[in-house]
């Protein structure tokens, strides 16, 4: 009765302009997550002093917190204390005038680092102990072993899971709509402010996310098949994949 597809189109054409924001909210965290997540995973694998035990406690704890909470806590933490600091220090202005988009990126990045460090850890675990021993026996240092032998082998294992992680981040990034960041979700809703077609706006947003996720899935499958060429054995029913 009230539903009108024409308004879905209106919302859709507005919302596609905000795709870059949604990509920034998922790709930057993915990138940071891969860098820092791998570092944490490597530290835990090599049992680096202090860092490894700390990560052993922190990562499982942080994994339990939903993304929404990270977002709310960051949203609160970034403004209130810096408003106070700004009375004394001029540099605090940079942070307190920050666009909410960056708060979203920071919150999602923390979440991504936690999730991806777990991905990388299980990828590192998939390389057998014998590989390390073999490396050391031919005189490679720890670092060389990691860089030349272990990581190249764990990457193909990690790629499909990273793909799923990215899809999780793209979908998860929609929660920034709650702190009113202009991403695809809120972009779709801007037209609804005038014509009150909220349901149509949500449906338009759904189509855009669906499109992005399908594309991401396809890209990662292509990449996975590419890396598979150099490796014969890949577990076809890797059930642990469906994590996020």
């Amino acid at each position: 009765m009230i539903f009108d597809f024409q308004y879905v189109v209106t919302s859709f054409t507005t919302a596609i302009h905000y795709i870059p924001a949604t990509l920034a909210l998922s790709l930057i965290p993915l990138f940071l997550g891969i860098i820092f997540g791998t570092m944490i995973a490597v530290c835990r694998r090599f049992r680096i002093k202090f860092v490894a035990p700390l990560a052993d406690i922190a990562i499982p704890v942080m994994k339990g917190i939903p993304l929404v909470l990270y977002l709310f806590i960051m949203n609160f933490l970034i403004f209130k204390p810096f408003d106070m600091l700004a009375q004394y220090y001029a540099w605090a202005d940079i942070i307190r005038y920050m666009d909410k988009l960056y708060i979203g990126i920071i919150a999602i990045s923390i979440y991504a680092i936690v999730i991806i460090s777990e991905t990388m850890r299980s990828a590192l675990m998939s390389v057998g102990k014998g590989q390390y021993e073999a490396c050391y026996s031919v005189g490679l240092t720890r670092w060389q072993a990691l860089w030349r032998v272990i990581l190249p082998q764990s990457l193909p294992v990690a790629i499909p899971v990273l793909g799923n992680n990215l899809i999780g981040l793209i979908k998860g990034s929609s929660v920034v709509y709650l702190i009113t960041v202009l991403d695809v979700m809120n972009g779709a809703l801007t037209t609804a402010q005038i014509n009150y077609r909220f349901l149509e706006a949500y449906i338009a947003a759904a189509f855009i996310y669906w499109g992005i996720c399908l594309l991401t899935e396809w890209l990662f499958t292509v990449w996975e098949n590419h890396t598979k060429k150099y490796q014969m054995r890949i577990d076809k029913h890797n059930l642990r994949k469906e994590v996020l």
Partner: peptide, 16 residues
């Protein structure tokens, strides 16, 4: 379902 955010699904199902 796998390609869209849960929050969008909630709204669509809840209101649609």
């Amino acid at each position: 379902i796998r390609g869209t955010p849960l929050i969008v699904q909630l709204f669509i199902i809840y209101y649609g």
